[in-house]
Simulated scan of single mutants.
Amino acid sequence: MTDTPSTKSGGFTTLVLLLSLLAGLSYYLAGRILEPSTLLIAWKGAGVALLAVWAGMQARNLDGWLIALVMALGATGDVMLETHGMTQGGLAFAAGHLVAILLFFRNRRPETTLSQKMLAVLLIPAVIWIAWRLPADRAMATDLAVYATPLAFMASLAWISRFSRYLTGVGAILFVISDLLIFSRFGLLAASPLPDLLIWPLYFTGQAMIAIGVVRVLSRDSET
């Protein structure tokens, strides 16, 4: 029996996802072994960029292209943090959060429990307040709170979206934690090795869980 074109296409799609996971997870070690370089910057961006490619390969409607764009903006932010600095990288991520907000708002869960609603509501002020409180330099507090606002709304809407709460919802929470750990470098955990150890694995795992959770549901929709 020969493989059909769809089988071959599915195998290649899976390969792209595996390459994405390999690139993202291996960067965690590469960043600690290799000296800063263009190669290392490209390596950093490759994991989420390949998630964008993987999502785009399976996009069949607007929502499919939206999740691909979310990942593409995340990869852009990963690279720009290294090449242009925190402000420009943060703008790319903020743009990604706004696109994700649109995606999750379009895909709200028809029914949610009281506890799910309460977490979604409380998440927004909690994330913004923590971001505002973390920096020792209070001149940074407002900027971090402004950035944290679309981040918090993104995670809140992900939690009550129709996508898997254990993939997309939890992935969005991991993304939030990774960003708050970045902010903690400016205050509470400035002298701690904890942020450097946790930021990348939490961030990349969160991005992968968000993408896989969304694409899985959208792919199931296209088969029905």
Rank of each mutant, 00 (worst) to 15 (best):
M140F: 07
I128Y: 01
A72H: 05
L189A: 08
L157H: 00
F183V: 03
R133M: 14
L174D: 06
F175C: 01
F153I: 15
W43I: 13
T13C: 12
V214E: 08
T4R: 05
Q116D: 13
W129F: 13
H84T: 05
W54L: 03
A126S: 15
M154R: 02
R106C: 01
F204M: 10
G187E: 10
G74R: 03
V217M: 11
L17Q: 04
D78R: 05
A23G: 04
V215K: 00
S37K: 06
L174R: 02
Y28S: 03
G47C: 01
T14V: 12
S156L: 06
P110G: 08
V127C: 10
G56W: 04
A139N: 13
P150L: 11
A158G: 09
Y147L: 10
L189R: 04
G31R: 15
M1F: 10
L39S: 06
T2G: 07
A46Y: 02
T112H: 09
I210E: 04
A155C: 02
E223R: 15
T113A: 12
I212P: 02
V170F: 15
L73T: 02
V79S: 05
I177L: 15
S192W: 09
F163N: 08
M140N: 07
R185Y: 00
R185S: 03
A158T: 06
Q207P: 01
Q88L: 15
V48P: 00
T14Q: 11
P150V: 10
M86Q: 13
V48K: 01
A23I: 07
G85H: 10
Y166I: 10
S20N: 10
A148H: 06
R60M: 03
Y27R: 03
S219K: 07
I160V: 15
M154Q: 11
A92F: 01
L189C: 11
F186Y: 13
T14F: 07
L34C: 09
Q207E: 06
D143G: 12
M71V: 02
A158Q: 05
I41T: 14
D196N: 11
D137A: 11
E35D: 15
A172P: 09
L62E: 13
I124S: 09
L181S: 06
L17T: 01
Y166G: 14
A172F: 00
L174I: 08
A75L: 06
R185Q: 14
Q207L: 02
L102I: 14
L25E: 05
L180G: 00
M57S: 10
A46H: 01
N61R: 09
L34P: 01
H97L: 06
T76K: 00
S219L: 13
K8D: 14
R138D: 14
I124V: 15
L91D: 07
R220T: 11
